[in-house]
Design a protein around this nucleic acid. Structure first.
Lengths: 181, 181
DNA sequence: GTTATTGTCTCGATGAACGAGAGTCTTGTC
DNA sequence: GACAAGACTCTCGTTCATCGAGACAATAAC
């Protein structure tokens, strides 16, 4: 299966990598008695926190592809573990804002910290031009995936438009950029 | 902000990419009334099929990080949809071999085909040296994740040694999930 | 033969996610 | 101000994937 197509091997490598990352996440979650969804939610909340974006239950549920009832239950779980807390929005009193606790930041770092260290250290052996190539590749792969998602669920963004796991809509859950702190 | 550490931005890009891929998988699964686990199992089975490796329920469950009861239920679901079928191993009659149906291959291609096309086409604009750089990067990232998983759950892999169904451990035994390939 | 091990499946329980809809608040129109 | 429509969150009852424990069958070791 190697390579009539030079890019094909890379695609498979990339897929294998995402599988590994998923498993790492699942193991970490199990280790801390969290469900994979809880960990994904936490990561999203931490990303948003660092980026200065406020997250609401509805928005979180949309990002995770779960419905509002599940989002409520999810937030209940996280709140019960003191990872986040709810705050009623004073501007629009229908809304609830989700704020992460220090504890959650610590937990997040215990997950990503060591991994990021390893990765950054591995990335250290590349020169600027090489890093630029890798960056371009990752960006283009991201665009390919986004385009494919768009094609598959074109109704994205319209609120009741699609089926159950309605495409959360545009923004990639974890904007890659937000500084790693 | 990404600039104190050149590699950090790449790490976040990579993470964002994996999130996108996960979401794509979830959407595809929902579209076909499959659970995410079912899709992951299917991918693993298709990979194994192409590689000429026979998969058993136990092996599949280990790869997916679920226990034997869940693996049985998962296989029941896939079989009920005519995506796979069970065959008793004639050599070791305790074992059951899982064989994928044509239908499953078609379904798998309807998921990965368009995505791979996009990616391969995007990868076409790189020269050999650049592809080599990207490949090296992906391999090293994979190694970093694997190393981190090893650190987190060192007992993984040995069957009797680590208590695989342990509560907190949850999915430890999973040696290397959905084989990429 | 007997015992230990491996591989799969069954059973009942747990809980995450779902659909439907109620309650609360905001916005737009009169 | 009052009223209708819509947005946001939460509650309720149900469904189903996963779990732990263990039954059953076949193999391996003695």
């Amino acid at each position: 299966m190697d390579d009539q197509e030079p890019g094909l091997g890379l695609v498979h490598l990339l897929r294998g990598l995402t599988v590994e990352l998923d498993l790492l996440g699942a193991e970490f979650a199990a280790l801390h008695h969290l469900h994979p969804t809880d960990l994904r939610a936490l990561i999203h909340l931490l990303d948003a926190d660092r980026a200065g974006i406020t997250v609401t239950p509805g928005r979180l549920g949309a990002q995770l592809g779960i419905n509002s009832a599940s989002a409520t239950a999810l937030i209940d779980r996280l709140e019960r573990r003191d990872l986040i807390h709810r705050v009623r929005d004073t501007g629009d009193r229908r809304r609830v804002l989700l704020e992460v606790e220090e504890h959650a930041v610590t937990l997040g770092w215990s997950f990503f910290g060591p991994l990021i260290s390893r990765m950054v250290s591995a990335a250290g052996s590349y020169d600027a031009a090489e890093l630029a190539v890798v960056r371009r590749f990752l960006v283009e792969m991201g665009e390919a995936v986004a385009a494919e998602r768009q094609r598959m669920a074109p109704s994205s963004g319209t609120r009741g438009g699609g089926r159950r796991t309605q495409a959360p809509g545009g923004a990639p859950a974890a904007a890659g950029e937000d500084g790693g702190g």
